[in-house]
């Protein structure tokens, strides 16, 4: 379900007219903004994102030095949105790394070892594709509790299958290349061949898949936090900020704008980079 939601948002958010270098340029600009926001963080806003001041609750943008206003507890919206960069990107990055590692390992093994290993792993990948992940995620978090690592691990286990599927498909082609045979005939072991020539050939594809997976995971984290099962209470996460803003949509709409814009910026940037890299490497982008 998460994957489908992300696919929909990707289609809605994709800029249709940009091509090649334009995509990478736009993505690079977005990335630059994200890097600045992440590094500078709440310091840029001049307020502590966790500082509660009930006297200053629901101030409109501009009032009392709060450039984007304050929320229902008087916390600075800009500071919380900026703090959200660190949280969201860290969760998405951690989950992408776990997913990429696990998925690449499974995909490489399934591509290399013919016979029963490939049959078993391929079935496992197909089963995982068909699995209702939102249900699993909700169940795991309900049992294991909230928290950064729980979220990272669960989302990592959601994203591995995308990597595994693409790596399997690609490695079935790459394993037939002559320079892979050359490595085998030099008497290099399976691990050296797989992590050497095979993985080197997969690098562009992996980067593209990782960019799309990263976008999916950003949305997934925001969705879970919105539902109240992602970020722990009080964490400045875009998803929880959006959830909290619902009660004030008509009275204090500024609570909605900043976190929503941040989600759009991050997801759009990841998709632009993914598309740009995919076009640049000609057909490597079979991430969908």
């Amino acid at each position: 379900m998460i994957a489908q939601d992300a696919g929909l948002s990707r289609r809605l958010l994709r800029a249709p007219r940009l091509r090649g270098p334009g995509l990478l340029l736009a993505g690079g600009l977005g990335l630059a903004v994200i890097v600045v926001c992440t590094l500078a963080g709440p310091a840029l806003a001049g307020f502590d994102p966790g500082h509660v001041a009930t006297a200053d609750r629901l101030l409109p943008p501009g009032a009392g030095g709060h450039r984007l206003g304050t929320d229902q507890l008087g916390r600075d919206v800009l500071a919380r949105t900026l703090a959200g960069f660190r949280w969201s990107l860290a969760v998405a990055l951690g989950a992408s790394l776990i997913g990429a590692g696990l998925g690449t390992a499974v995909g490489l093994a399934a591509g290399w070892y013919e016979g029963w290993p490939r049959a078993v792993l391929s079935r496992a990948i197909e089963t995982a594709i068909a699995f209702p992940y939102l249900v699993l995620t909700l169940a795991v978090i309900a049992v294991a509790g909230h928290g950064f690592w729980a979220l990272v691990v669960v989302l990592g286990l959601v994203s591995w299958v995308t990597f595994a599927r693409v790596v399997l498909a690609e490695s079935l082609v790459v394993r037939r290349r002559e320079y892979v045979l050359a490595a085998r005939l030099l008497g290099l072991g399976d691990a050296r061949v797989l992590l050497g020539p095979v993985l080197r050939a997969l690098r562009p594809t992996l980067l593209v898949v990782a960019a799309f997976a990263f976008a999916d995971l950003l949305v997934a984290e925001a969705s879970l936090s919105f539902l109240g099962v992602g970020a722990p209470l009080g964490t400045p996460s875009w998803g929880s900020m959006l959830a909290e803003s619902r009660a004030y949509v008509f009275t204090a709409p500024w609570l909605l704008y900043a976190p929503a814009a941040a989600v759009v910026l991050a997801v759009l940037t990841a998709n632009l980079l993914g598309d740009g890299l995919a076009q640049r490497w000609g057909g490597a982008g079979r991430a969908e």
């Binding site: 002559e178 320079y179 050359a182 490595a183 005939l185 030099l186 080197r200 050939a201 690098r203």
Partner: peptide, 18 residues
């Protein structure tokens, strides 16, 4: 393997481009 080696027909496909 070290005792038996192959020189490939296609010097383009048989060297890892990376």
């Amino acid at each position: 393997r070290p005792r038996m080696q192959l020189v490939f027909q296609d010097p383009y496909a048989s060297l890892d481009p990376h």
